[in-house]
Every structure is written in C-alpha cells, then in structure tokens.
C-alpha cells in the first residue's frame, strides 16, 4: 500500500560466469507470489546474484547481468521496493523493541499503535523465547533478532521484493518465516543450503562458478520427500524446544 508501483515481475538477463563465459541461463522471470531459491556450494555466486537484484544491475556489476522490473529498467528508488535480510545483520540501535517499531512505523507513515503488537505477535510465532515490547533490541538472542527482523520486514517495510541470504541457522521456524515473508504477493528470493527450503520453493536456480547454471522445478518425488523432511524438521524443532525448556527423553 505504501509502494509506489505495482511490481508484477522481475526479469534477470544472463551475464557471465567468473571465467567470463556466458552463463547458461539467459533469461529468468520471477513473478509476484513466487519464492525462488538459489542453491550451490559456497563461492558459487548466490550472494552476488542477490546483490545484482538488489542493485537492479544494468550490465554494470562483475557478472554483467541486467535486472528488469515489469520488463523495464526501474527508475524509482530501489530501497523502497527491496528489503534484505542476511546472517550478518544485527540490531545496533540502543532502544526498546516497542520504541524501535514505533520509530520504524512512523518513518513509513504507518499508524504505529496497532502495528507494534502485530509485529511482536508475528515474531513470537517464529522464535522460541517470546519477545517483549520492553526488551532492548540489542539484547535479543540471535533467533529473536532474526524473528523480529522478519516480522518487521513483512508488516512494516512491506517491500514487494525480499532478498534473504542464508538465514536457516538462526534458530527460527524457517518454513513459517518464508510463509510470513511471501505472504501478500511478494517476490522472495532466498539463498539457502537447507533442503527443506530448497524443496519448498516451486523452482530453484542452481549456481555454479558465478553463473546461473540450471533452473529446476520441484518434481513429484521431491514434493513427497518434502513432507517427510518437514515432519522430520518439526520433530527436530520440538525436540530442541523441549530440551531447551528442561524437557527429558525417557525410554518408552
């Protein structure tokens, strides 16, 4: 609602790999509502591709890719349409969760009273220990910080494009997190090493040597496997929560 243009799709026009060869994928459309996952070993160029999208590159980055919005070069302010989240990001401001959210909401001209509670409630569905409006943001745990950032991006930033770089180890409910982010018809692009996240998306781009090497659609077998992985993952999550909150495991 605070976005000036309606983003319908992003198009990535292929550039070059690290060796200067044309990357195999020459054109890639990502439409509203899609979650796209970038996979590939460390150093294969996932972060670089996210950075190209963030910059809305026009053959002016090392990869020489071009990124279009709704089939044209985007002329507006890209920080208004793109939100980012990565493992290296932390809160640094010396303020409480409540005051911080009010500050952020008012910077976006959003009525802050209602939204503060909504953001905290949403964040608390993602992380183990509940977040309080009176907590200082810099004292939140890694998982709590990540959860609050995700809820804040979803509800206050509300950017139509969200770029996520490897957040799976943050101790949050990652499936729920992706659901929250992709809600409301956003485009979410996630670099990940986590099989659950890879298979949850309908499509994944396989990166190799700095280039987009293949685009794979999640097949029937993988979707079946996903259900197993998810319940496996849920068991892991509840086991972790249980052990963390002084639960014990007994012989049946």
């Amino acid at each position: 609602m605070n976005n000036l243009v309606t983003i319908k799709k992003i198009t990535i026009l292929g550039g070059y790999t690290k060796d200067g060869m044309e990357e195999p994928i020459r054109k890639m459309d990502i439409t509203t509502g899609e979650i796209l996952v970038l996979v590939g070993p460390t150093g294969s160029g996932k972060s670089m591709l996210l950075s190209d999208i963030e910059l809305l590159a026009s053959a002016d980055t090392p990869s020489k890719r071009t990124v279009l919005i709704n089939d044209t070069m985007y002329e507006g302010c890209r920080s208004e349409i793109i939100a980012q989240l990565s493992q290296t990001m932390n809160f640094v401001m010396d303020t409480t969760v409540g005051d911080f959210l009010i500050l952020h909401a008012s910077s976006r001209n959003i009525d802050s009273d209602a939204i503060v509670n909504d953001v905290i409630a949403l964040a608390n569905t993602l992380a183990g220990e509940p977040i309080n409006p009176h907590d200082f943001i810099t004292t939140l745990s890694g998982g709590q910080s990540r959860a609050l950032m995700i809820a804040d991006i979803a509800l206050i930033s509300d950017s139509p494009i969200v770029l996520v770089d490897e957040i799976e180890n943050a101790g949050i409910d990652k499936l729920q997190a992706l659901q929250v982010l992709s809600d409301k018809g956003k485009i979410v692009i996630v670099a990940s090493h986590d099989p659950v996240i890879m298979l949850m998306a309908k499509r994944r781009v396989v990166m190799r040597n700095g280039g987009m090497n293949k685009v794979l659609s999640t097949n029937q077998k993988e979707t079946e496997l996903l259900h197993e992985l998810i319940s496996f993952d849920k068991n892991m999550f509840s086991l972790r929560e249980s052990l963390r909150t002084s639960g014990t495991i007994e012989i049946a």
Binding site: T88, M89, F100, H104, R108, M149, S157
Partner: peptide, 14 residues
C-alpha cells in the same frame, strides 16, 4: 548497511 537490520537502514535514511 550489510551489518544492520532493514528497519534501521530505512530509519537512518529517513
């Protein structure tokens, strides 16, 4: 901007 949250970047810019 690589080490602070999206929200802080937005507030700072404003």
């Amino acid at each position: 901007g690589d080490i602070v949250s999206q929200a802080e970047r937005e507030v700072f810019r404003q």
